[in-house]
Design a protein around this nucleic acid. Structure first.
Lengths: 151, 151
DNA sequence: TCAAAAGGTTGCAATCGTACAATCTGTGAG
DNA sequence: CTCACAGATTGTACGATTGCAACCTTTTGA
């Protein structure tokens, strides 16, 4: 029985992964995965200093400088001086960057919604309860893990 | 209500994605993501010709040649001539490659199992039903989508 | 038999990500 | 004021992915 639940969950996870990957795929024609990670972090946590961003993402500051450079050149983000401190640089999302993340998020939601819509109401309720229980038991995922995939 | 189910599912998907990413992360210290994709395909579909493998993965044959070269040098896969045809080359998993994929799969199962174990039996049942319903409604994910993430 | 097609590999070039070391500018403590 | 430290960028180097074009060998069809 325990095996049953695990198997069901693994199968469902494959379906969800497919959805996530597909939702991201258009974005990956505009930016690379590491670049998208930057956008996602900025979207979740808001603008921040270069150093903090590098730490969040887990790359060397010099690496981030180059990545951010490319993102800025393509209009996804903005680098601006911090008032009152001329050493630090603040990075934040430009409209284009925010829109890209938003597009992916919306696509994901829309896909899931369209799948759930195909179920009768009482089955929707079951899905909701099952997902909620699992999510609660699993706890919040480590953000660093999610970043690995650029979520 | 529809929104509720969608939200629950999205939250659960984040948890599942964290699990998937974390399970993959040790493997990514041994191979790159594109390399891992090759291993996964070979694990799922068995050995095949270079050309077919390139098509499965969606890269140019010449790209695959180089990737496979590296995997072979590190003992993850094997390139062997096809008997009866001296043009084609068959690629298949070496023990080391199979073990790597297996490790990731097992880690994923173990994590999910450990989470589900924390639930009382009747909640496990609910999770099972919910996951099963969702998975069925979602259908099989397009393998090409999954590959995007190296699953 | 011979030319065309199939299957793979090599040469070449561009792009990224990555880190380390060195550097430059600013800040802050003494 | 000066010196150590903080924050970020530049110089440098390397490895990986990627595709295109050219090429070699083998197969196959006319």
């Amino acid at each position: 029985m325990l095996i049953d639940v695990t198997d069901s969950t693994i199968v469902a996870s494959r379906a969800l992964l497919g959805i996530v990957a597909r939702s991201m795929s258009p974005a990956l024609e505009e930016v690379t995965v590491p670049q998208f990670r930057v956008l996602v972090v900025l979207s979740n946590k808001g603008g921040m200093r270069m150093g903090d961003l590098a730490e969040q993402i887990g790359v060397h500051p010099s690496t981030l400088t180059r990545t951010v450079e490319r993102l800025e050149q393509n209009g996804f983000i903005l680098r601006s001086p911090v008032p009152g401190n001329r050493r630090e640089i603040r990075v934040s999302l430009e409209e284009r960057g925010a829109a890209l993340v938003e597009t992916v998020t919306q696509a994901r939601r829309a896909t899931i919604l369209s799948i759930i819509e195909t179920l009768p109401a009482e089955e929707q309720e079951t899905v909701k309860q099952g997902m909620t229980l699992f999510a609660r038991a699993a706890g919040e995922p480590d953000p660093a893990d999610l970043l690995e995939l650029g979520i």
